[in-house]
Write a protein that binds this DNA or RNA. Sequence first.
DNA 1: ATTATTTTTTAGATTTGTCTAAATTTTCAG
DNA 2: CTGAAAATTTAGACAAATCTAAAAAATAAT
Lengths: 218, 218
Amino acid sequence: MTYTATEENYIKAIYHLQDVHEKVSTTLLSAEMNTRPASVTDMLKKLELKKIVHYQKYRGFNLTEQGNKTALVVVRKHRLWEYFLVNKLGFDWDEVHSMAEELEHISSSELTTRLDNFLGNPAFDPHGDPIPDNKGKIRVIKQESLAKIPLKKTVTVSSVKNQSIEMLELLNHFKIGIGTRLKVTKRFDFDESLEIKIATSHPTIISKQVAQNVFCII
Amino acid sequence: MTYTATEENYIKAIYHLQDVHEKVSTTLLSAEMNTRPASVTDMLKKLELKKIVHYQKYRGFNLTEQGNKTALVVVRKHRLWEYFLVNKLGFDWDEVHSMAEELEHISSSELTTRLDNFLGNPAFDPHGDPIPDNKGKIRVIKQESLAKIPLKKTVTVSSVKNQSIEMLELLNHFKIGIGTRLKVTKRFDFDESLEIKIATSHPTIISKQVAQNVFCII
DNA sequence: ATTATTTTTTAGATTTGTCTAAATTTTCAG
DNA sequence: CTGAAAATTTAGACAAATCTAAAAAATAAT
């Protein structure tokens, strides 16, 4: 089966929403896709015909087995291309998302395999997200939000949940990236902001919103 | 200005046809694009509005300055990606065309620039075709069809005109590639086939059709 | 439990790129 | 130079992905 780029985008969006919501709703997906709910309904009918989603009118929907597999292929391609753009072409991690959004729809699976090998079969993309292998398997690692790390414990930044350009720019400013070693030195009850310390540099304050989106290996 | 992938394909096709025909016709382009003449007419109206072609009803058409520039960008991207697929990912020269057809529509010009640098600013793609630089400039080299090379003169294969999979497979069989040094040892008047000799291996016979499509530097 | 609100779906339209069939224009042959 | 053939364009239709506005269903509130 092959899918249009638009179908793949819907499939990927449902996949990501399923991580958080066990049943996905029309409005939720329409917000994710920047379309109107009516357009989502139309697309769902198409995806149901293609056996990509389990869908009951007015009752929400989920990916089928086949839908999940397809999503993993798209996610794999997206993350491999991001890795390529950052580690081979030298882009910054906040510049690659939109390019990868286009590249992920290149169809050849042989290309994906060769790209994977060329890159050395990386397990994680530049934002710390796991790259599914060619069977769709994802290596899970135990991570904890920076907001919940105990004081004085040195941890390693392993991924970033919110990957908006704004967030990534802010992290660049703080010199926080994947692999950065840091510790939380203080926690302020008033606004739940944190004081953190990276290596030998001065401590800095990060907001609760930032801390909640940065994940670490303890 | 940005163009859809389909528009870019039309622009590229007109560009290539202009190499051979000074005015391009509807039927010719429809054959090149595998569409019906009526579809070409529709597209031409769109491209004329966008000032990509000079077009007079029933009289044929040509690219404008802007159209030519756009075509060169697409050709540049196509050939850079082919170079990448062959020289970095290890594909054969007969496998890369359709992938490059998709990759050439990735929009970011920054990506093109970085890819070009990553590849070492190559001047020719895997089929020996020149890669336009970032200003659209093409390095022209003096080439001669194998069919017209004098006997016993050792020459270097520099490009292949017909790049169908069938042709490239045949050349693979003969072990003829870009950079191959060879000489024509005999010319048979009956069917204009040639006997050629590559390095120390046995001489082989190639047909007129093949010889006309293989170009060399003398 | 009935009404009000929110969510979802349907109906009908639009854009892009394509098609077929018919009409028009150009070209070519006698 | 005129009629037939070939090439081109127009007209009308269709599929994909979207929209708005209206209708229908589900949920929440009194």
